[in-house]
Design a binder for these strands. Structure first.
Length: 171
DNA sequence: TAATGGATGTTCT
DNA sequence: GAACATCCATTAT
């Protein structure tokens, strides 16, 4: 995942994600229909859905599925690769393992906020994805921080990575 | 190492 | 008025 900040490349490998599947998924923002906040989820795939949560943090999702089929992938953690100094400055932290090991931390490290909500990441010069080697050991577990839909194993993370948000995921 | 509570927008009851 | 796709400082074990 690549973020361009003042012509500087700030990037990292995606380590942890969660899937949210619209109408079929009680934990999804889109489960109860379209609102002003979640309308990006109802748009075409490949756009950034950025929302403000718990009164203090932003979370970044990438939409999937065609228009009017709400679904998105929450990016929960990255392993910093380029522009590490910028991330440290944004976070006020030196520990590289803690720079972006959670959805709220990641958006802060990469300076992602509501202004990027709806960004087309296929065409964007500010936020986009590059193809990389897919890690071999990918594990699945329940999603984090939800109260319904817990039985779906829709959290995916690189097994053994020191950059996941929770060392010991709950099954 | 584990539990607690504050910050506080958006949506739902 | 309460819950929530969170994080962190503070306090208790």
């Amino acid at each position: 995942m690549v973020r361009i900040l003042d012509d500087e490349r700030v990037a990292g490998l995606i380590i942890e994600t969660e899937a949210y599947r619209g109408r079929r998924d009680p934990a999804s923002h889109a489960f109860r229909g379209k609102t002003k906040r979640n309308e990006v989820m109802f748009g075409p795939a490949g756009h950034a859905y950025v929302y403000f949560t718990m009164g203090a943090h932003f979370c970044l999702n990438i939409t999937t599925e065609p228009k009017e089929t709400p679904a998105a992938v929450l990016i929960r953690a990255i392993e910093p690769v380029d522009g590490v100094a910028v991330m440290k400055r944004n976070r006020g932290l030196e520990d590289i393992h803690r720079l972006a090991d959670g959805p709220g931390k990641l958006t802060r490290a990469l300076k992602i906020d509501k202004e990027l909500n709806g960004e087309d990441i296929v065409r964007s010069a500010r936020l986009f994805l590059e193809r990389e080697a897919v890690p071999k050991e990918i594990a699945a577990s329940s999603r984090v921080g939800i109260s319904s839909g817990k039985s779906f194993k829709w959290r995916f993370y690189v097994e053994g990575s020191g950059f996941v948000s929770r060392a010991k995921p709950s099954a």
